[in-house]
Amino acid sequence: KEHCKILRTEEDSPSPFPGLASGVLEMRVKEGSKIRNLMGGVGGVAGSGGAGGLRQVVFTGSGRAVTKTITCAEIMKRKVGSLHQLTKLRYKGVKEVWESHDGGASEMTVHRTVPSISILLSKDPLDPREPGYQPPETLSALWEEREGADPQPPAAFKRPAGPPAFGGYPDCKRACLGEGGGVVLPSLSG
């Protein structure tokens, strides 16, 4: 390879959580970060801790680190329990400096935009109306719940025109039952 990347810096962007107090622990997850190390860094939140313990933590990652960022948050939720979650997605600018070696070193700067995710986990309640809010203990329920644990009247097939509270998901469930008929439920147990 004649070109190699010698520097990668994320351009500054405003916090995705504007109302958040400054000084909240932010874990920047990188492609090569070890999950073990990251989770060690947030031990303060994980420890049941007294009143002085951390109440909130933010995981952010971009590009190829996005999956790892989610995994960290998921492990944290399982470990600590009862955490409120707020997830934000956006594009982030990244500046890369590349060096070429074919005859005389020369540098080249590239600007790229990559998808980035920020996940706020909080022991204190968060605004449920905020898009991307997830209440505690939805762990894997998002997938299973919708398969119809509590039957809802299929009458809700036609979605009300009212403002969809974030809970698109409960809505989804009803729609699902409505469309699929009762077939969805029985097939579950099999």
């Binding site: 998921e74 979650q85 997830t87 997605l89 898009p131 991307g132 894997s140 998002l142 997938w143």
Partner: peptide, 11 residues
């Protein structure tokens, strides 16, 4: 368009 993302774990 607005986005609202949730995350989960799948076994």
């Amino acid at each position: 368009l607005q986005l609202a993302a949730n995350t989960s774990t799948v076994e």
